[in-house]
């Protein structure tokens, strides 16, 4: 099997949510001298991107997405372990939750699945979370990104409050802030000074990867 074929098979294994096949391909890629990073980015990540697109079109469903994410994680773990010393990158960390007063967590949980599928270390605080708890958790785990979701126009102000609280604490430059949820828009994100806005779960994962310099 040549490199192009392995990459194509890797992409397919993720779309088919075939964890055993994905792990087998990861091992074969290492044995045949394929660059592990290329294998992750052009093979497995290409697959998870397509899974996101199919999910966004209603052609693939959440349980299948979860299985694809598990297949991706299994393969990525094998490939990451094979990276030469000094080239291993720390996994990006994100703290995420819904704004205080907002109990709507379905969209946020989908974002969590996509972030995990892309190999991020996700700290999901859950729903109806006090603004300060986002900051405390980010400090505790040394996160890269803080993400806040809001479904209501009455709770989206929590996203603005998060940025204000980070500024007050002198931590604004330390963390990237992402916002999302039904009433949030790119214009709102720009207005409150957020670093990124995700229009849906797949877009949120893409923006998170871009913030981490891996987009």
């Amino acid at each position: 099997m040549d490199k192009e074929e392995i990459l194509k098979e890797a992409r397919k294994a993720i779309i088919d949510a075939d964890k055993a096949k994905a792990e087998e391909l990861a091992k074969r890629a290492i044995a045949e001298g394929v660059d592990p990073l290329e294998m992750i980015n052009k093979g497995f990540r290409a697959g998870i991107t397509e899974v996101g697109d199919l999910f966004g079109r209603g052609e693939l469903f959440l349980p299948e997405l979860i299985l694809s994410a598990e297949a991706m994680k299994g393969a990525a773990d094998i490939l990451t372990a094979a990276l030469p010393k000094g080239t291993k990158k720390r996994r990006g960390k994100i703290v995420i939750g819904t704004a205080q007063g907002d109990i709507h967590d379905i969209g946020k949980s989908m974002v969590v699945s996509f972030l995990q599928a892309n190999g991020l270390e996700v700290y999901d605080l859950g729903r109806d979370i006090e603004t300060q708890k986002f900051i405390d958790k980010a400090q505790e785990v040394n996160a890269d990104i803080i993400g806040m979701s809001a479904l209501l126009t009455t709770t989206m102000s929590g996203q603005k409050a998060l940025i204000q609280e980070l500024k007050k604490a002198g931590l604004r430059e330390k963390y990237k802030v992402m916002v999302g949820g039904a009433p949030a828009t790119q214009r709102w994100a720009d207005r409150i000074g957020a670093d990124a806005y995700g229009i849906d779960a797949a877009d949120a994962a893409k923006k998170a990867m871009e913030l981490l310099g891996e987009g």
């Binding site: 349980p63 598990e70 949980s109 969590v112 699945s113 995990q116």
Partner: peptide
Amino acid sequence: MELLPMGKITEA
């Protein structure tokens, strides 16, 4: 939404 991220698809 708590079970699915843990991979507990049947339970979910």
